[in-house]
Computed example of a mutant assay.
Amino acid sequence: MKNFKNKLTVGLVVAATALLAACGGGDDGVDDRLGISQPSVRLLNTVPVGVNVDLTQNGAPTQVSNAPYKFVSAYFDISKDNNLFQLKLAGTQTVIGQTTINGATGHKYSLIATPGATSAELVTIDDPYDKGLISDKARVRGFNAALNSQNIDMYITAPAVDLTTVGPTLGAIAYKNANPPSGADSIYFDSGTYRLRITTAGTKTVIFDSGALTLNNNADWLITTIPVDGIGAVVPNRIKVLVATSSTGAGNSTELVTQPLTPVAAASAPAAQ
């Protein structure tokens, strides 16, 4: 029986490896799904006023240098010991934020350069990455980097859904906080056509509407609200959204702005898992 179980486990791993390779899963390997990967970190710059940044680790440069607005780095491995990350204005020694990460096996960390009241700040999200070995579902997490929208609800629904009939998908996200929170796994969706609407928390007052969005199998989205006016923004609820995806290479996150919903088929998108 033990030998059969060993063979079954090996067979599942081989099958999962083939599945992930076929999907082109990006930073989504078998070691990630088994929870045995080296801890890793990436940086996302959400400061929309031309603040380019460098990231150092224990005083040494990292692969993140002169990162502009919307830039999201590839994940890179870190140790399990103390990792002091400092966010600096590009080309200078001016530290505008720092954090220490004690890396945990199987965890991924997002460092987010966030627009604050007077300068950029640094926020960390710990992602335990508990995705099933052969799952093809998409992962989604929300983050609020909009100091002018202190508490928000995110609704991720089929495009035609009436918000008065449903509760928020990701509720009560305070400024510089995530939902699910740091240290908890993302929520899971089937692929399909969705619509992102953001309201002030506890209300149905929409302050952002994405129109129709396509969420693919094995997508991994970090949905971040930011103030249109950047650092020191004071106009309430004037926001836009960045969507950072998991990837094996560095690139730009996708910027979304409010737009009317174009006509789409009314087929219901599956609910979050």
Rank of each mutant, 00 (worst) to 15 (best):
residue 220 D to A: 07
residue 68 P to W: 10
residue 16 A to I: 10
residue 174 A to E: 11
residue 234 V to Q: 12
residue 185 D to R: 02
residue 144 N to W: 06
residue 248 T to R: 12
residue 56 T to P: 04
residue 76 F to P: 01
residue 98 Q to K: 13
residue 211 G to Q: 07
residue 169 T to E: 01
residue 92 T to Q: 01
residue 98 Q to S: 15
residue 74 A to N: 15
residue 183 G to T: 07
residue 93 Q to P: 07
residue 249 G to N: 12
residue 243 V to P: 05
residue 9 T to E: 11
residue 93 Q to V: 13
residue 259 Q to T: 14
residue 94 T to R: 05
residue 208 F to P: 04
residue 33 R to S: 10
residue 119 S to V: 10
residue 105 T to E: 15
residue 18 A to M: 13
residue 64 V to W: 09
residue 81 D to S: 13
residue 6 N to I: 07
residue 71 F to K: 08
residue 217 N to R: 15
residue 241 V to Y: 06
residue 270 P to H: 01
residue 114 T to P: 00
residue 173 I to S: 00
residue 91 G to K: 02
residue 127 D to Q: 13
residue 114 T to K: 04
residue 139 R to L: 08
residue 21 A to N: 15
residue 144 N to Y: 04
residue 25 G to Y: 12
residue 107 H to T: 14
residue 31 D to G: 03
residue 126 D to M: 10
residue 6 N to V: 07
residue 69 Y to S: 02
residue 159 P to K: 01
residue 229 D to N: 13
residue 138 A to K: 05
residue 59 G to A: 07
residue 70 K to M: 14
residue 20 L to T: 09
residue 191 S to E: 00
residue 71 F to S: 10
residue 164 T to R: 09
residue 44 L to N: 08
residue 120 A to N: 00
residue 146 A to K: 07
residue 59 G to L: 09
residue 21 A to P: 01
residue 58 N to P: 01
residue 245 T to S: 13
residue 203 T to Q: 04
residue 152 I to Q: 11
residue 14 V to M: 06
residue 17 T to E: 09
residue 38 Q to A: 13
residue 114 T to Q: 04
residue 52 N to G: 00
residue 214 T to S: 08
residue 96 I to Q: 03
residue 32 D to C: 11
residue 146 A to H: 08
residue 84 L to P: 00
residue 198 I to S: 02
residue 204 K to H: 14
residue 157 T to R: 04
residue 192 G to D: 01
residue 133 L to Q: 13
residue 179 N to E: 05
residue 228 V to C: 01
residue 191 S to M: 00
residue 199 T to R: 07
residue 182 S to R: 06
residue 232 G to M: 10
residue 119 S to T: 14
residue 219 A to L: 02
residue 64 V to A: 10
residue 123 V to K: 15
residue 21 A to Y: 13
residue 10 V to W: 05
residue 205 T to W: 04
residue 52 N to P: 00
residue 150 Q to S: 11
residue 160 A to I: 05
residue 184 A to L: 10
residue 64 V to N: 06
residue 18 A to I: 15
residue 185 D to F: 06
residue 90 A to V: 10
residue 67 A to H: 10
residue 35 G to H: 11
residue 186 S to Q: 06
residue 170 L to C: 02
residue 112 I to M: 03
residue 253 S to H: 05
residue 140 V to Y: 04
residue 175 Y to S: 02
residue 121 E to L: 12
residue 41 V to R: 11
residue 35 G to Q: 10
residue 106 G to W: 13
residue 97 G to H: 08
residue 37 S to W: 08
residue 70 K to R: 15
residue 48 P to C: 04
residue 69 Y to F: 15
residue 245 T to F: 04
residue 80 K to R: 14
residue 268 S to W: 00
residue 115 P to N: 07
residue 203 T to R: 03
residue 22 A to S: 15
residue 253 S to Q: 03
residue 13 V to M: 11
residue 99 T to W: 14
residue 209 D to F: 05
residue 22 A to H: 15
residue 261 L to G: 06
residue 62 T to M: 08
residue 256 L to M: 04
residue 260 P to I: 11
residue 118 T to L: 12
residue 266 A to H: 09
residue 197 R to T: 02
residue 6 N to T: 08
residue 260 P to W: 12
residue 104 A to N: 15
residue 92 T to K: 03
